[in-house]
Design a protein around this nucleic acid. Structure first.
Lengths: 253, 253
DNA sequence: CAATCTTTGTGCACGCGTTCACAAAGACAT
DNA sequence: ATGTCTTTGTGAACGCGTGCACAAAGATTG
């Protein structure tokens, strides 16, 4: 639908690739740790190891931001912390609302990671009237009826959805209608939003299923290896129950 | 295509691209919803819309699993649910342990998404002796000292880490040492694991920072536009005030 | 000041994933 | 049975991200 209409270059304003943007927070975290230990400079090799990435990738990532390193020395930690923070927009204050104060929503409200860097929980919103006024993480929960007013009064542009799946799209529509343009979705649903609104999803169930796939594959390979060599299962495969009984079909060449 | 052997869909356990695997849970969710509505068949176009992806991508994804569709008709919902479930390893039971029963860990334990498909919370583990024995989500919390025994007794191969960042690597090492080969990490740290162990991370802070980046970029573009056109900044994003105008997800044919 | 050493920044090639576009396959109507 | 219509399955082209390998840049030493 509407393909080829307004060609919108996603990350064209600065030309920073999306993959790079996704790694910047990782670098920032590693750099912050170094900064707290008063380390003045760091090489791409060291920093890459701390962030769990390839050093060439890290250097290329930084090259998109500019030339902030010194050859023969490395990168100035403090300077880089500042540059990345600025690039990510963390030098300003981001008021955030959390909608859906159940188990997960409450946990998110209590999570320290919010306040740490530029993000501030401006309001908690729930549809349950019984929750209204009740403080969670020191913040009184407000009712969904006031959602639009809360968004506008606080200048909120980032919303977190932690409602049940059934309510997510409706909440999303109201958030977007009230001016929110970035949404972090914890509900297990695909949200549809108009152009210009960013959605990122965090889905426990999906992550587990991906792990299960690889786990099954590992178990299958392991079973086939011991089958092929006629070896009994070694220490590792203590739980190779195959209730499925289905041996993956891999044709030996 | 591929090997002419009708032996079986040759590209089974091997050769499924990672990107495809990551989308299978999405398809499965959409298909399950259709199944509950007793929809017998679905076209790639409809299913793709429901899953929020491109229809060509969906067809290619399914082609890696085998030829499960009927040209001119579409895909049989029930059959596809079964095939994807099997491929993802959801036909078997996956006992899972959650380590770190703080706000987040407790929320995860209560999360319904676990029990729904093949995953079962086998144990909750925390380092705080005061927590020991206390039930969370109907499951008594056990102490970290017994971690290895718990893993082995329950045949656990998937672990969830919801501890503070400082404890994550240590917990990870013990999990891996006890036989866990898949880890879902909620702690804001890079975990290092030996080969053969899969780690997926869920990091609220990183997601927010990525959103902030795009948010800042949008604000910058908007400011530049209104600057260029000499327009005063109006109520943010007010151009698109169609709150209910857009029908979500399912498109009428 | 010149030589050497360290580390950055990047051109290039490669592989993966996405998308297009269309022939083949099957359902359905006549 | 034949033709038409719908939808799949996939070859091919393209673009993005990754990693190698190395020249350039600057620090450091004698």
């Amino acid at each position: 639908m509407a393909t080829g209409r307004t060609h919108r270059p996603a990350t064209r304003s600065r030309g920073i690739p999306e993959a790079t943007v996704a790694r910047l927070p990782l670098y920032l975290r590693a750099l912050t740790a170094l900064s707290e230990r008063s380390v003045p400079t760091v090489s791409s090799e060291e920093l890459a190891a701390a962030a769990g990435v390839n050093s060439a990738k890290l250097r290329k990532d930084f090259s998109y931001l500019g030339s902030y390193g010194t050859r023969g020395v490395g990168y100035d930690v403090e300077y880089l912390v500042y540059q990345i923070s600025r690039e990510l927009g963390l030098t300003q204050d981001w008021p955030v609302v959390i909608v859906g104060i159940g188990n997960l929503g409450a946990a998110l409200a209590n999570y320290g990671g919010f306040a740490s860097r530029g993000f501030r929980v401006a309001a908690l919103i729930d549809a349950d009237p019984a929750m209204a006024g009740k403080p969670v993480a020191g913040i009184p929960v407000q009712h969904t009826d006031d959602l639009e007013k809360i968004i506008q009064d606080n200048g909120v542009s980032i919303g977190v959805i932690a409602t049940p799946a059934g309510a997510a799209q409706q909440v999303c529509d109201r958030l977007v209608g009230a001016g929110v343009t970035s949404i972090l979705n914890f509900a297990p649903t695909v949200l549809s939003v108009p152009d210009g609104v960013d959605v990122r999803k965090v889905d426990l169930s999906i992550e587990l299923q991906i792990l299960a796939f690889h786990e099954q594959r590992k178990a299958g390979e392991e079973a086939m290896e011991s089958l092929a060599e006629g070896l009994p299962a070694t220490a590792k495969g203590s739980t190779d129950q195959g209730p499925d009984g289905d041996v993956p079909a891999v044709m030996p060449a």
